[in-house]
Design a protein around this nucleic acid. Structure first.
Length: 110
DNA sequence: AAGGTGACCGGCC
DNA sequence: TGGCCGGCCACCT
């Protein structure tokens, strides 16, 4: 919150906010779109900070396996899954079914 | 300034 | 698919 620390984060938020309804993406895809394909971990870190952001649908961001890794970071237990299912995405055991079917590549829009 | 950490990814078995 | 290991980059203390 100092001043320019949002630079990288905002970049991630910008991508995530562009995720269309009923679509999901992976950390790696976002990192790649940012140009730092190997900093997928950073994307996750940015998402961690996204908790206090409003327009960041972090529930649409999963790892490349389609696993809802960050669901524990959400409100409690199944909130993330509920949100995804609410958007027409089939989720089973914290994992997205037909990931490629709902997958969305940010670099395409960017 | 240095070390530790992380909602990851890719490769290998 | 799942588990283990190494790498990678930015943030935090």
């Amino acid at each position: 919150m100092t001043k320019a620390n949002d630079n990288f984060f905002e970049r991630v938020y910008c991508i995530v906010r562009q995720i269309p309804y009923g679509k999901v993406t992976s950390y790696g895809a976002i990192a790649k779109a940012l140009g730092t394909a190997r900093s997928a971990r950073m994307v996750g870190w940015a998402m961690n900070a996204s908790h206090h952001i409003e327009d960041v649908p972090a529930h649409r961001v999963v790892n490349r396996k389609g696993l809802l890794t960050g669901k524990l970071h959400f409100d409690g237990t199944n909130l993330m899954q509920q949100l995804l299912e609410n958007e027409g995405i089939t989720v089973r055991d914290n994992q997205i079914v037909d990931l490629e079917l709902h997958f969305w590549t940010p670099e395409i829009e960017i």
